[in-house]
Structures are given as C-alpha cells and as structure tokens.
Nucleic acid binder design. Sequence first.
DNA 1: TTGGGAATGAAAACCATTACCATTTAGGAG
DNA 2: CTCCTAAATGGTAATGGTTTTCATTCCCAA
Lengths: 155, 155
Amino acid sequence: MPGRNGKGPAWWRGKFRGCGYRLTVPRETIIEVLSKAAKHLSAEEIYLAVHKVYPAIGLTTIYRTLELLVQIGLVFKFDFGDGRARYELAEGPKGIRQHYHLVCTNCGRVIDYTDFIDEAKEFLSQTMKALTEKYNFKIANHLIQFYGLCEKCQK
Amino acid sequence: MPGRNGKGPAWWRGKFRGCGYRLTVPRETIIEVLSKAAKHLSAEEIYLAVHKVYPAIGLTTIYRTLELLVQIGLVFKFDFGDGRARYELAEGPKGIRQHYHLVCTNCGRVIDYTDFIDEAKEFLSQTMKALTEKYNFKIANHLIQFYGLCEKCQK
DNA sequence: TTGGGAATGAAAACCATTACCATTTAGGAG
DNA sequence: CTCCTAAATGGTAATGGTTTTCATTCCCAA
C-alpha cells in the first residue's frame, strides 16, 4: 500500500516529475503535513507544522508550494470567509476527497459532513453531465456548503 | 409592485426598522445598487457605483454596511479565491436567489447557472432536513460550486 | 562532477479589509 | 418644529494575509 508510510514511493511523485517540477525537501514535507492532517489547514498552520520538521522553511515557500499544488490539482483551496485560505489534499487513500460543509455564519465554525453522500451522488453525476454539455465546462471538483447557525449560536 | 422603482416603499425597509437600524442615504443607495446589479459585485465595484450617485460615500461605509446586510441576511457574501469578496442580494423579486456556480480554476471566470435546479431541489430538501436533524444546524442558505476549466481554458 | 535553471528564504511591497476618532445625522421625546 | 443623543459616517492610519523581489542555494541532467 504505497504512500501510507513516510518512506515508500509516494503516489504523488510521478505527478511532479511528469509536470517537470523538482522534488525538494520543502515540497515533500508540505505534502507530508497535508496528508497527515485530517482537516483543512491554513497557510500558517501548515507553516508551523512543517517548521517542526524542517525549521529552515520560509512562509514564502509555503504559499508558493500551495499555489503550485492547487495548480496541479493535488490540493484544494477553500475560503470560509474568515480572511485566511484553507488547504486540503484533493486526493486521499480513498480517492477524491469530498468537500461538504456546514458553515456557521455567526461563529465561523465549519463542520465537515460525510453523511448523505450517496443521495448526492446521483444528483451530482446527472447535474455535472448536463453542465459539462451545456457550458462545455470540464468539471474537476465540486463543493457544497450550507450556511446557517450551529447548535451553540442558535441560543 | 412595490420596490421595483426607486421611490416606492422598498420591501427591505421593515427589516431595518425591525432590527433597530436607521435608514440612511448611504444604506439605501448601497441596496439600490445591489438590487440593480445582475451579478455579484466586489466592495470596490459597489463603492464606484454608489459614488456616482452619492459622491460623499466612503469606502468604510461600504464595508460596514455590507457586513450589516450580511448579518441581517439581506446579502450573501462569496469568495471565489481571487482575494476580494463578492456580494449579492440574498433575496430578489422572485424570492431567494440561488447560488450555483461554475468556477474556472485557471482564469477565475464564474458562470452562474440556473438550469437543473429542479433536480437539485429534491436532493437538497432531503439533505437539508437530514443535516438539520443530525447536527442541529439551522440552515439558512446554501452554495453549490463546480470547479474546473472553462471552454477557453481547455485549449 | 559540473553548469544552469529551478527553488528557496528573508525582507519589503502589496492590497483588501478593519480600527480609530472626530464630525454629522436620523429620528424619537418634548 | 426643535432638541438631544446615540447611531452612522468618512477620512486616515493600521492590520494582516498573501505576493513580489532578489540574492543565494539546490536539484538533476549531461
């Protein structure tokens, strides 16, 4: 099961070489951090995590690498409206990660839900097919967010 | 048909008074601009539009008012990842506006689609009901975005 | 091993948004 | 209608996440 431990020939290396990008310690470490993170991290959180392993890292490199990873399609970039972007691996061991969120418009809390996805699948596949045809738009990913008040903020 | 012209007793005034907020020229003008805009505008675009009618307007007031309108639920705030937020009236003459987008990850173009919404309705109502129950989350609005490459950027 | 372009990191620049504060204004009380 | 007071405004300065600049370092193909 390649890519599960830190040493094996990671599944994403081919993507780098294929695009002509170099494999460097900062880049590997950033992907390592992202793959171990359960949730969407901010640039600063990634910086701090990488810094523990590779103290020479610069914040600039974090941003540059993330931009590159987003470009390649390895990473997904979110914006929940709190002024800082969040990043998450687009792919995981179980395939494409899903991005379904409940966003509290009062406190900013974000709940990732993974339920009710089967119901979404059919609707999504139909809609994507139709949109692709009508707008000639090549869909690579999608995002569904519900906004409202979380349990605490309803009081 | 109240609220269609600039003088009639606009449909949103009650919302202001009810919350204890004052009716001012800047606020009225900002809502006016938003209601005439077909699409999501950035703060600066709103500023420029208001400035034509009310040159004394300050950018600070634009931001403050938009924040208020978002709070009240009159306006919806988007973030497409280009570093500036976009704003759009949450309600329109035809009721709640829908927020379904195709976002090009290459050029940043945003396509609003209004097709295939009926198919979404059933799925959404079911999912919202289930999410509301499971997470005790009071859903007020939702957003569906598909990311990919637009027609031009596929070449 | 070596050459050269890609990648890096520190510091400065950038820019949308927010905070500060003195002034003006809406709108209810009298 | 006039006063009064808290709310609202707007110019300016500050904030803070992100990007640019540029000299230095590093990957890697030959």
